[in-house]
């Protein structure tokens, strides 16, 4: 199967440690084109680290990551080129506060892809319009609500026309009433066929949108399956425990 270009993303035996702390203990995961995979699990289970490793923001200790059959973790691979087709959106938005919304979105297309300013602005304006942010393009990030900022961050990643989007708990820093606007955006992306890996605490949303749900526990994928399997008939005791605690917290 290795080298088979059909998989959008293939992770093999991924290990990651921070000093003595082993955060990921051998992750194997294959994601097909147009598939939406949700990663669930307690804080500290390694969801964010896994996404950061896929985007090469963190070096791996062992294992490999392949995108469309190309090993992106191999030596000598141009990480800047790889990142152009893997978009990531962070929990804390990480917009550039000294730039307008429009410039936030056009920076990477113009500088990393060499797109002309006019083309980049046309793409950005269209994306901002599509996600209900047309009137915000000249604002600065600090003047937007959290939900608007996170939508801008999604648009900024989309402007690079990525093949895969990684979403790292993108609604966790938002006030509850702002969450649905961001989830709607992600839902629309899923419907348009975007391949996505989503770390989330929104179980209802995961159930709704995911083709597959992976439960991470202590740096390993303990259980994976369709949303129905995971949410209605989890096999592993740890998964049952986790879902029970979520249920008690009223987050489902």
């Amino acid at each position: 199967m290795t080298g088979d270009g059909a998989d959008a993303l293939r992770i093999e035996g991924l290990h990651k440690s921070f000093g003595k702390l082993e955060v990921l203990k051998g992750i194997d995961l294959v994601i097909a084109e147009h598939e939406v995979v949700c990663l669930i699990g307690a804080s500290g289970s390694g969801k964010s680290t896994l996404l950061r490793c896929i985007n090469l923001l963190e070096p791996l200790n062992a294992g490999r990551v392949l995108v469309h059959g190309e090993e992106i973790t191999a030596r000598g691979v141009d990480v800047n080129r790889i990142r152009r087709y893997i978009g990531i959106v962070f929990q804390a938005f990480n917009l550039f506060p000294h730039m307008s919304v429009l410039r936030n979105v056009t920076l990477a297309p113009t500088e990393a892809l060499g797109m002309s300013k006019r083309d980049a602005e046309a793409v950005a304006t269209e994306l901002l319009r599509r996600f209900g942010l047309a009137d915000k393009k000249d604002e600065f990030p600090d003047r937007l609500s959290g939900g608007q900022q996170q939508r801008v961050a999604i648009v900024r990643a989309l402007a690079m026309k990525p093949d895969i989007m990684l979403l790292d708990e993108v609604t966790s820093a938002l006030d509850p009433e702002l969450v649905s606007g961001v989830l709607d955006v992600i839902r629309e992306l899923a419907e348009s066929g975007m391949t996505m890996v989503i770390a989330t605490h929104e179980m209802g949303f995961a159930r709704d949108i995911a083709n597959r749900v992976c439960f991470l526990d202590a740096g390993q994928i303990l259980e994976e399956g369709t949303p129905e399997q995971i949410f209605t008939a989890p096999k592993e005791p740890r998964t049952q425990q986790f879902l029970q605690s979520i249920l008690e917290a009223g987050r489902m």
Partner: peptide, 16 residues
């Protein structure tokens, strides 16, 4: 550092 992470994740080089 998250600002650098955001910039690098968009495919910008270190110097960019």
């Amino acid at each position: 550092p998250s600002q650098v992470a955001a910039a690098r994740s968009l495919g910008l080089s270190r110097s960019q």
